[in-house]
Simulated scan of single mutants.
Amino acid sequence: MKKHLLAVVLGTSSFISAGAMAADVSFPHLETTGVGEVIAQPDMAVFSVEVTETRPTAKEAKQAVDKAVTAFNERLKKAGVERSDIESANIRLNPQYHYPKDQKPELTGYRASRHVTVTVKKLENLNAYLDGALGDGINGINNIQLKVSNEKEFAEQARLAAIKDAQAKAKSLAAGFGEKIDGVWKISYQPSMIRPVMMRAMAMDSGANTEASYQDSQITIRDRVEVVFRLEE
């Protein structure tokens, strides 16, 4: 008896049309979505801090933030942080005004700000760097990203897990319908991005205990693959 076209679609989170994957396919086939997941412990971080100062003149405001940034950069370099892992943004300088009712605005001073982004290759040093920033006059943390240094290795593990998942689903489904797999006809794949763990921004004097939270954090690396398997005719 001639077999009819068999199409099975898995993966409710997919926005890719399974029918589009196998468009104009005239032979019996089976479609699956393989999903892989790997849990990793972060071992590095990227954080961004900010110093903002308001002074009567633009020159004084600039000098104040430059002084804090220079001191912080020097502290990091003495601690062994490579210069290439420190990015100091250009200064932002804005006049500040007071707006009396029914009167012209009055210039009250200038606000200057600079950002410093630091890549921390040893996570255990993160808290010490943040504490050092406070002592150098840095007055805000914009964000902290916890990451893994060997992203490619974990991404490969997640990819292989997704491939095995697609194969296992296909084998199980084919057997359940009394069919046999006869090779792979099409593979659709788009690499998944590894998203770092984001810690919320905070004021430097907030007293928040970030150390325990980032040391206990985990990063989930996920990947997926869409596969069309040919069935024996």
Rank of each mutant, 00 (worst) to 15 (best):
A203D: 15
G137H: 14
K77N: 07
E106A: 14
T210M: 05
N150K: 10
A161N: 14
S26E: 13
L173S: 04
F177Q: 11
D131C: 08
N209D: 10
T119S: 14
G137Q: 09
D24E: 14
F177R: 10
A170L: 00
T70M: 08
T108M: 06
A175Q: 11
P105V: 14
Y110R: 10
R195L: 11
S26K: 12
M193I: 15
N73E: 06
Q215W: 07
L134F: 03
Q41N: 08
L5Y: 07
A89G: 14
G109D: 03
V25D: 06
K186A: 01
K152W: 10
Q190A: 15
R92C: 15
A64L: 04
R222D: 10
K121T: 11
L173W: 08
A20S: 15
G109C: 04
K78Y: 08
E37N: 02
V38P: 00
L5H: 13
F15Y: 13
V227A: 09
S88W: 08
D43T: 07
P196I: 02
F72N: 04
M1N: 08
A133L: 04
R83G: 13
D66N: 15
Q63C: 14
T108L: 05
D24H: 12
V51M: 09
T210I: 12
W185R: 08
V25Q: 12
N209F: 04
T57K: 14
L93K: 03
S192K: 15
D24K: 05
K78W: 07
L123A: 04
I219H: 04
A20H: 14
E153V: 07
A68Q: 01
I219W: 03
Q103T: 12
G207R: 00
L107V: 06
N209R: 03
V49T: 06
A45S: 11
S17E: 05
Q145W: 04
S172D: 09
L107K: 15
A168I: 05
T108Y: 00
R230T: 05
G178H: 00
A61Y: 03
I181C: 01
K3H: 01
G137M: 10
E87M: 09
N94K: 08
R111A: 12
N125Q: 13
V228Y: 03
I181H: 01
E156M: 15
L134Q: 12
V46W: 00
I144R: 00
R83C: 06
V9W: 07
V116I: 15
R224H: 07
E106W: 01
L5M: 10
S149Y: 00
K3W: 00
R230E: 03
A22W: 03
R195H: 03
G140E: 04
N150Q: 12
Q96N: 05
E60F: 07
S217K: 14
G34V: 00
S206E: 04
R159H: 11
S48R: 06
E31Q: 03
S113C: 04
